[in-house]
Design a protein around this nucleic acid. Structure first.
Length: 506
RNA sequence: GGGGUGUUAGCUCAGUCGGUAGAGCAGUUGACUUUUAAUCAAUUGGUCGAGAGUUCGAAUCUCUCACACCCCA
């Protein structure tokens, strides 16, 4: 709280969207202030709504006549039905909903009259005995009732809720109040992250934290956010990936490490892109990209079973099968498989591939090699068709500056990307641990940067130095958590799985 | 960056051919002691996203801008 804020309680700054409804609630709050402490905090909540619903689901109405169950619950008033000398309200706490019965007989005239002025959205504490209504709904017969927090703003319509998407993203708190579906999505997200963490911990991986503020933004090809460190007087970047730091740790002898954290990329916003997004990256020494594909299948299958209870993953009208072995197919084979009119010759020489790319409407830059052009053709003609989980392998070295070259074919690397629902979900490879090759690849990246590729990598001399000490054969992978959560929660937009997605300021 | 759609009461939405701005919910007042989106009666509430233009007259037609959503690059 700002110290120079001279405003006294109750004389708050006039909000711009003040209206009749808010004004009246402010008046009610004013009366509460005059009557004593308007924001009491000594109420002790003892039970959660959902626990009680679960615990007493099998007890019938007469049971409660013989068994006194006294509870103390608290939550937000979502529904209110006043019938003269008795009322029902439905409150919502973090676990679920519970009905409260308020009678003038039990509460007394004064409290009951006051209660009738309370509004939906207000937060209340309730004590009383449990019973079941004629329709069998578990209800608390309130003998103590206290308004804990006055809500000054009216809630959205009780039946339709908040449907304006912009408002749901900008005022997520309101979306969470109104939508069980939204609450479930983020509970699911928490479960997913928790499962992933346990999965790797259970395999002796160590969780680490590496710099988010980096002097050289490395580990991926993307535009970084720039910032400045005043004391050191140097420009710094928000990280686009943790990769190079995690591999330094493998050099240091931490054979199995993982990090779940945010990356930042200074790019456009879309249903699949948010400027900050969450990735898990994990690295395992003495493993290959084949091992990673096995681990990934195991992880995804386990996750689906854990959070959905099934290996069939419904998504936007499709169903993806996580039970079957994930298809493994090379970049070039996948192009041929999904495009009967494209021949192997069309994509095996720079000239032919360039011609094909241009026919597909791709703007080919002069510095692109065959590998880059193949990937562009793949992006346009294959990616969207990869619905069931598919590992695409044999990525060109040209577009894989950190991956180990294939022993039999140095045009390609021991790398894969995982696609589900037509979207890239993961990217992994056997790591390039040849310091001299890595130095050359960095130099090539620098040349591409000079040639106009703003996303090309910087030369990271300390990373080369680390590799020169020797990194054991290692494989590493990154998985986009947000896109994974989208899949498992059947969410069409990345904004639906990020609590506070980035929007243009109001 | 390009295209499409949208923006009307606190919320969910109507608004015909350009002719005085509508409903439901919420709110307010009254009735009602087992309701279930309670019900019944009455009633308050509007810079129609912003600006300009056409017109006797614009929520409605035209243009510009803002924001959002969707599609494409």
């Amino acid at each position: 709280m700002s110290q120079d804020n001279q405003n006294q309680p109750g004389q708050a700054v006039e909000p711009q969207d003040e209206n009749q409804l808010i004004a009246l609630r402010r008046e009610k709050l004013g009366e509460m202030r005059a009557a004593g402490n308007a924001f009491p905090n000594e109420f002790k909540r003892e039970q959660y709504a959902a626990d009680l619903q679960k615990q007493y689901v099998d007890q019938d109405k007469p049971w409660f006549d013989d068994n006194e169950v006294r509870v103390s619950v608290a939550g937000r008033i979502m529904l209110k039905r006043v019938m003269g000398k008795a009322s029902f309200i439905t409150i919502s706490d973090t676990s679920g909903r519970l009905q409260i019965y308020a009678q003038i007989k039990l509460l007394g005239d004064e409290l009951y009259e006051s209660f009738k002025t309370w509004d939906s959205g207000d937060i209340v504490g309730v004590e009383g005995l449990l019973f079941k209504t004629q329709k069998g709904e578990l209800t608390v017969k309130a003998d103590k009732l206290q308004l804990l927090t006055k809500s000054l703003r009216p809630l959205p319509e009780k039946f339709h809720g908040l449907s304006d998407q912009e408002q749901r993203y900008r005022q997520r708190y309101l979306d969470l109040i109104m939508s069980e579906e939204t609450r479930d999505t983020f509970k699911m997200r928490s479960k997913i992250v928790s499962y992933i963490r346990r999965f790797f911990e259970g395999r002796d991986f160590m969780e680490v934290e590496t710099p988010m503020l980096q002097v050289i933004p490395g580990g991926a090809t993307a535009r970084p956010f720039e910032t400045h460190h005043n004391a050191l007087d140097i420009d710094m970047y928000l990280r686009i990936a943790p990769e190079l730091y995690l591999k330094r740790l493998v050099v240091g002898g931490f054979d199995k490490v993982f990090e779940i954290n945010r990356n930042f990329r200074n790019e456009g916003l879309s249903t699949r892109h948010n400027p900050e997004f969450t990735m898990i990256e994990f690295y395992q020494a003495y493993a290959t990209f084949h091992d990673l594909m096995d681990i990934t299948e195991e992880l995804f299958r386990g996750l689906a079973l854990e959070v959905l209870g099934s290996t069939e993953v419904p998504y936007q009208g499709e169903v993806f099968d996580f039970a079957k072995t994930f298809e493994r197919i090379s970049v070039t084979d996948s192009i041929l498989k999904h495009n009967p009119d494209i021949t192997a010759d069309d994509i095996s020489s720079l000239e032919a591939a360039t011609a094909l790319a241009e026919k597909l409407g791709i703007h080919v830059e002069g510095y692109w090699g065959l590998g880059k052009i193949q990937m562009e053709i793949f992006d346009v003609t294959v990616e969207k068709k990869l619905l069931n989980p598919t590992f695409i392998t044999e990525y060109p070295a040209e577009v894989s500056p950190l991956a180990r070259r294939n022993d039999d074919n140095d045009f390609i690397t021991d790398r894969f990307e995982l696609f589900i629902g037509g979207r890239e979900i993961g990217n992994g490879f056997s790591e390039l641990n040849d310091a001299e090759d890595q130095a050359e690849r960095f130099q090539k990246q620098v040349a591409e940067k000079d040639a106009g590729d703003a996303e090309a990598m910087h030369y990271d001399a300390d990373y080369i130095r680390a590799l020169e000490y020797g990194m054991p054969p290692t494989a590493g992978e990154g998985i986009g958590i947000d896109r994974l959560v989208m899949l498992l929660t059947d969410s069409p937009s990345i904004r639906d799985v990020i609590l506070f997605p980035h929007m243009r300021p109001e």
